[in-house]
Nucleic acid binder design. Structure first.
Lengths: 128, 128
DNA sequence: CGTTGTTTTCTACGCAACGTAGAACATCAA
DNA sequence: TTGATGTTCTACGTTGCGTAGAAAACAACG
């Protein structure tokens, strides 16, 4: 239960955009943002969706544990449970986890990262 | 187009099992193996599937580019295009690739590998 | 308190992927 | 030719996702 659809991903992108600010978004905020983003690079722009559509998606994302909703306030407020980076890293672990020979996978994996990323990794791994 | 269903994965596991041996499998081989594996640990065991079911799955896997089939020989022979490790590593790159801040993701990723794996990574990354 | 605009829930349709397999066609061995 | 075996075609049921209407819950105003 890890993969997201196109619209689900677009909604998560909205939430992730403001994840730092710990600013939980209302539905109306999000719709405004998404309409404003018209003409942006990302994939899902073009038509405006019905309010209920976004709500349905948010509910599904909540059920998947990716979104948290404050039910206390009256216009409910939504926010991503974890940052995009954390989520992606978690996904990578999920993929890796299902492998019997993790180290062999890692070997091939680092075999095709860019040199600059390899450099970053060296720094992060530090000295033995 | 990256994710596999449960049965698709089970079939790939069969093919991956003998990927080293460059031994392309016939359908009958695979059915025998899968029946033999009854009582094994993996998830999908329990009932025997119809021959056509496995064939359909193989066709779908072929369309996805994960399986190659020799059409020349009469009982066709099937084999995984790449090893399980390569495939998993590729998947990890796919997940990573969609991130705007790859290095931040990598940072979090290596933050939660086991020490032994970190050691392996250090060796593989080698000297600057 | 009732009318009205906003927000949330419930329900549902269409489509695609996947598990599943029957029916029919092709091929090989006797 | 006749079985036995292998392959293709087609299809049905389920589930996830994009999409949204209808209706219920609620807030604010007069």
């Amino acid at each position: 239960m890890a993969s997201l659809g196109e619209l689900e991903r677009a909604v998560m992108d909205l939430l992730w955009a403001g994840h730092e600010a710990a600013t939980a978004n209302t539905l109306r905020d999000m719709l405004a943002q998404s309409t404003a983003a018209q003409g942006g690079a990302a994939g899902h722009e073009g038509k405006d969706l019905a309010v209920t559509t976004v709500l349905t998606v948010l509910s599904r994302l909540e059920k998947k544990g990716l979104v948290e909703r404050e039910r206390g306030t009256r216009p409910h407020r939504y926010q991503a449970v974890s940052s995009r980076e954390d989520h992606t890293a978690e996904l990578m672990h999920e993929v890796l986890g299902s492998a019997p020979d993790r180290e062999a996978v890692l070997a091939r994996f680092i075999g095709s990262v860019t040199e600059s990323e390899a450099e970053t990794l060296r720094k992060l791994l530090g000295h033995s």
